[in-house]
Design a protein around this nucleic acid. Structure first.
Lengths: 121, 121
DNA sequence: CAGAATCCTTTTGGATACTG
DNA sequence: CAGTATCCAAAAGGATTCTG
């Protein structure tokens, strides 16, 4: 099955969704949130290389899309937990397939890259 | 199932693969190439909004990863066909699931966005 | 037809400092 | 702890021109 024709057109709502998924950090965050809820700085430590600014922005987008929830606990200092919503959980299963593909075919991709670079240096 | 722990670390090869998939155009191109091979300008016309430069760059990356093939026909003027490789075809199935998710849950996401914007104007 | 090259604008992202 | 605000460097992207 392919996308319907209109998905290739601009301003198609599905394109907006794909734009969001087409974010290297979003996929990693969604995957990380499977299992238990995770606090902000915990995410920041776990997902190496993401800056605090970009993490903050990405979480906000995912929350806006209804994929993750943000829960504030009135401790001192304040604690914030991020978790997948039911909607986010349905997407998580799909993301896992992507992750599984990546792990399974990673070696093949790397070999293809090296072959390509050898052909076109 | 989640990613292995190392996937969250920088310079993990799986991250490189996910970076490539985390490209809004790559997903659309992979999907469009299911079915028959497609020529450059045909892709350009079908995938509305992509510039010739970005299409060219994206195709090159996908070819380097071994996901698509590029075949040159010595016509005048020259004709170039892009198609999924067997490897690309295995990924295509996963991409379809993502596309299917997007089409199915698009309305829910849009509603979540409007609710979010209403809460935080 | 299928691009490469160039230029220039827009976006993105990192570093730093500050706040409830 | 969990961010926001600001400034600046880097990268991505569009428009245009040119070519085998």
């Amino acid at each position: 099955m392919q996308f319907g024709y209109d998905v290739y057109q601009e301003n198609c709502p599905t394109r907006h969704v794909l734009d969001r998924l087409g974010d290297k950090w979003a996929l990693l965050i969604l995957d990380r949130l499977e299992g238990e809820p995770v606090r902000f700085n915990h995410l920041r430590r776990d997902i190496t290389g993401i800056s605090q600014k970009v993490l903050s922005q990405t979480l906000k987008k995912l929350e806006r899309d209804g994929l993750i929830s943000r829960t504030v606990f009135p401790t001192v200092p304040v604690t914030v937990e991020y978790a997948l919503t039911p909607l986010g959980r349905t997407l998580g299963e799909t993301v896992n397939l992507l992750a599984h593909w990546a792990e399974k075919h990673m070696d093949t991709v790397l070999a293809a890259q090296q072959a390509y670079d050898a052909r076109k240096p």
